[in-house]
Structures are given as C-alpha cells and as structure tokens.
C-alpha cells in the first residue's frame, strides 16, 4: 500500500496535477473574487467589512487542516518510518504557516472597525497565536537540525503536542467567553450565515485549497528532485 506513495511513482503525477491546477486556478480565483467583492451583499451590521471574512475563514480552516494532516503524517512517519511523509510534511508546513498568518492579519484588519481593537488576548486569538508558534517551531526543526533521524523525532513530537491545540482552537469559542464570535457554519444543524454569503465563502475555500495544493506540489516536486540529485551523487 505504501509503495504507491513512493517518490518515483508520484513524480509523474505531480507535474500533471500542477498543470491541471494552473489551468483552472485563475478562472476560479476570478469567479471567487467577483462573488466575494462584488456580487455578494454587504452585512446588515458590518457593511462591507464582512468581505474580509471571505479570506479570513478559509485561511483559518486550512491552517487547521494543514496542521492536522501534518500531525497525522508525522505519527505514521514516526511509527512506520515512511520516509516520503517526511518530505510531504516539510512541504506542507510553510503553507500552513502562511495561512495562519493570513488568518491572524485579516482578522486583525476586521477587528479594528468592528470590535474597535486590533488584537485582544481572548481564548480564540491566543490559541491561534499558539498555533502560529507551533508552525514556527516545526519549521525551525527542519531548518536548524542536521540529522534526518533527529528531525523526524523532534518534529513529530512538536506536531503531536501541537495537535492538542487544534480542538482547543475549534472549541475555544464555546468553552470560554471570548470576544471572537462562535462558529457560524456548523456541520450539524443550520448555519447562521445567509446562502448569498455562504456561496462566495465556499468558492473562496476552493480557491485557497487549490492555491495550497499548488504551492505544496511545487515544493514537494523540488524535494523529490533534491533526493534524486543526492542519490546520483552517491552512485
């Protein structure tokens, strides 16, 4: 089963996927932005600053999703020593950090006109800040350590400890009183967001997903090329 994920098999697939995403990405980006910036209605209290949400929410979701998948792959890598997951994780981490920072920055820009402050240390904002720190530590483990064995150990432990933060972020708005509003979109039950705003949000989510996938594939490709070069030198 794991042979399917071996680098040589995957390499040819990656180039095809990159080309495919490149061909549809800008089209979907344009559709998403027209919906988000022009066609969607303003909010009844926030006015046009609601449009920041179309960047903020998908970025935050993907930041959490990236860390979850890093944790999952880290655990598998640590237990079964599948070297390929190491390179996948190395490629996902910077995207996750980017999305986390994006969510924090756009949230800050939204907070100033609506709440009246750029930043408060409430549970949601603080836990998101902690997630950013975990991403930074995770990436630093790859940058600072030399031995691959050691990197796998240290980074997996960072990922596993950091993963406890993920449910804390998700439920921080329910467990404690926070300035941040509770989730509008629920998996079970009805969402408290109007369909005219939900649609652009979902299109923007797709845009962010494709963008994240694109950057990931490009980084992953570079990693594979690097491995192949090393192997050649060894021969």
């Amino acid at each position: 089963m794991f042979k399917f994920f071996s680098s040589s098999n995957v390499y040819s697939l990656i180039q095809k996927l990159i080309n495919f995403i490149n061909s549809i990405f800008f089209l979907i980006l344009i559709i998403g932005l027209t919906f988000a910036l022009h066609l969607s209605p303003p909010d009844y209290v926030q006015g046009d600053s609601v449009r920041i949400m179309y960047v903020h929410v998908p970025a935050a979701w993907l930041a959490l999703a990236c860390f979850s998948s890093i944790t999952f792959l880290s655990i598998l890598n640590f237990i079964f020593k599948i070297r390929n997951f190491y390179f996948i994780n190395k490629s996902i981490a910077p995207i996750g950090l980017l999305f986390t920072c994006l969510a924090i920055i756009t949230g800050s820009l939204w907070g100033q006109p609506t709440w009246g402050t750029w930043w408060v240390w409430d549970a949601r904002l603080t836990s998101m800040f902690v997630l950013m720190l975990f991403y930074v530590f995770y990436i630093l483990a790859f940058k600072l350590l030399r031995k691959e064995e050691l990197i796998i150990k240290v980074s997996s432990i960072i990922a596993i400890i950091g993963s406890i933060n993920i449910p804390i972020i998700k439920y921080s708005v329910e467990w404690w009183t926070t300035l941040h509003q509770p989730a509008s979109i629920k998996i079970i039950g009805s969402s408290s967001i109007h369909p005219a705003m939900l649609l652009p949000l979902l299109v923007m989510l797709l845009v962010f997903l494709l963008y994240g996938a694109l950057i990931f594939l490009m980084k992953y490709k570079t990693e594979i090329i690097r491995i192949k070069k090393k192997n050649l030198k060894r021969l």
Binding site: P41, P42, D43, Y44, V45, Q46, V50, M53, T114, W115, G116, T117, V120, L179, Q181, P182, A183, S184, S192, I193, H194, A196, M197
Partner: peptide, 17 residues
C-alpha cells in the same frame, strides 16, 4: 475605560434583516 463591540455569528444582507 474601553468599550469593545462583540459581533454575533449571524451574517445576512440588510434586506433579509
């Protein structure tokens, strides 16, 4: 000494409101 507005989780266009 400071007032912060708390927004709720409802998002809708003004007409719907």
């Amino acid at each position: 000494s400071r007032i912060l507005a708390k927004h709720d989780e409802n998002y809708m266009p003004p007409e719907i409101k």
